[in-house]
């Protein structure tokens, strides 16, 4: 049976800010559903310490995460449409890099970077929706990770409190729960037309 293709996803553009435990997994989920285009942004390279939760392979250590993610996504569907930026995001370049995106996934690791991305989208990018994650460290407590719409243009995923601290590592199992909440929230937004889809050229909310 041919895979179902969702028109709403096929015509969508999703920006992914950071390709760590969240972004590398969100990108795979959205690629499997044949999302129209993904804008992949990360400045970092794959390290062996990433392999406990990030969607990379041992033989990709040392490569830029953008390149390694692109390779992995093309192994799912060779025709996937990607825009690749190996750059550190800041309040100035975010606006241009994600100009075409219908939804932006905040997939950073550090709290101040999450703040920076969300603040920039909400204050400088009218009409854009951001799906962010806060609170996913540790293991277990799957049902404490929730998806909440807390602003007209911000969906926040996580338990809100579990940050990194000694003895509470990040795990593939719990980061994965959050990453797939994030991917699922993006799919829901696009399927429900709650964001302006780029082919319509609309900037409304």
């Amino acid at each position: 049976m041919a895979p179902h293709v969702f028109f709403e996803l096929k015509s969508a553009v999703v920006g992914i800010a950071g390709l760590g435990g969240l972004g590398s997994n969100v990108a795979v989920a959205l690629t499997r559903l044949k999302t129209g285009k993904l804008i992949l942004v990360d400045f970092d390279r794959v390290e062996d310490s990433n392999l406990n939760r990030q969607n990379y392979f041992h033989d990709q250590i040392g490569r830029f995460k953008v390149d390694a993610t692109a390779e992995n996504l093309r192994r799912v569907w060779p025709q996937v449409s990607l825009v690749e930026h190996i750059v550190r995001l800041n309040p100035e370049n975010i606006v241009n890099i994600f100009a075409e995106a219908d939804v932006i996934a905040e997939c950073f690791d550090r709290a101040d970077q999450k703040q920076m991305l969300v603040e920039t989208v909400l204050s400088k990018m009218p009409g854009k929706v951001v799906v962010s994650v806060s609170g996913l460290a540790g293991w277990g407590a799957s049902n404490e990770i929730v998806t909440r719409q807390i602003h007209s243009r911000l969906i926040l995923i996580g338990d809100g409190v579990s940050g990194l601290r000694p003895g509470v590592p990040l795990t593939a199992s719990r980061v994965g729960v959050a990453a797939y909440h994030q991917a699922n929230a993006i799919v829901e937004l696009l399927m429900n037309h709650k964001v302006p889809v780029s082919v319509q050229g609309s900037q409304g909310t």
Binding site: G20, C107, F108, D109, A111, K114, Q115, L136
Partner: peptide, 10 residues
């Protein structure tokens, strides 16, 4: 005032 707080990890 709405304060949206972030903790690290991703």
């Amino acid at each position: 005032i709405e304060l949206i707080r972030f903790v690290g990890g991703g």
